[in-house]
Simulated assay, not measured.
Amino acid sequence: MAPSEADQKIDYIEMNVKDIEGAKQFYGEAFAWTFTDYGPDYCEFRDGRLSGGFARTHTVTPKGGPLVILFAADLEETLSRVEKAGGSISRPIFSFPGGRRFHFVDPEGYELGVWSDR
């Protein structure tokens, strides 16, 4: 049996949130993600390439885990959308070998990054 292309690859990201509707509003507005609700305590998101979920919890501990990094063709426009949607910039745009990126904190307290090769 040949291994599948998905074997040993990141397949799904799940984020614990207190406010599923708020998470949907933020990520829908900032990144145009789409959503499928599975009852009052779980919602799947799709970004067009990867899927994940928002799981309702009473305690959110967003610090200390892996840094999720999204790609953007237009970094400045994406930064503006993040701020407009209610995110706060935790690290302004900076250069690194291979491109530029910024970090932001979403309304639940998760820090993510956005990078561009331009």
Rank of each mutant, 00 (worst) to 15 (best):
V114N: 05
F31L: 02
D47W: 02
K9R: 15
V105F: 12
V105Y: 06
F31P: 00
F35L: 02
V82F: 09
I20M: 01
G22P: 05
H103A: 13
G86M: 07
W115A: 07
D19E: 05
S88W: 09
V68D: 00
S116K: 08
S51Q: 07
Y12K: 04
P107W: 01
S80N: 15
G86I: 10
D19S: 00
I89Q: 00
A2G: 11
D74I: 03
R56I: 00
D19I: 09
P62M: 06
D106F: 05
F102G: 02
D106I: 06
G87W: 03
G65L: 15
E111G: 06
V114G: 01
V68K: 04
H58S: 14
I20C: 03
L75G: 09
F54C: 09
V68P: 00
M1V: 12
H103G: 07
Y12A: 03
N16V: 14
P92W: 03
M1P: 12
G109Q: 11
R46P: 07
E77M: 08
T36I: 04
S90Y: 07
W115I: 05
I93C: 11
A2P: 13
I69T: 09
F54S: 01
C43I: 02
G22N: 01
V17L: 00
L70M: 15
L50A: 09
E77H: 11
F31N: 00
G22S: 05
Y38M: 10
T57L: 09
F94V: 15
A72V: 08
A2D: 12
I10E: 07
Y110W: 02
E108V: 05
L70T: 11
S116I: 07
P3C: 04
G28M: 00
T59S: 06
F71H: 14
K24L: 05
G53R: 00
P62T: 06
F35H: 07
F71S: 14
D74P: 04
F94H: 13
W115K: 08
R118G: 15
R101V: 02
G113T: 13
D19H: 11
P97M: 08
G64Y: 12
V68Y: 01
R46E: 13
P62S: 06
V82P: 01
A32V: 04
G48C: 03
Y27A: 03
G99L: 02
P97I: 10
G99C: 04
D11Q: 14
E14Q: 12
R118N: 14
F45I: 06
E21G: 05
S4R: 02
P66N: 09
V114P: 00
D106V: 08
G65Q: 08
A72L: 08
A23G: 10
H58G: 15
E111R: 10
F94C: 13
A55M: 15
E76L: 06
R101M: 11
R118T: 13
P92C: 06
Y12S: 02
L79A: 12
E14M: 12
D11W: 08
S90T: 15
Y38N: 10
G109W: 04
K63I: 14
A2Y: 06
G99K: 08
E44F: 08
S116F: 10
P107E: 01
R91G: 10
R81P: 01
H103K: 12
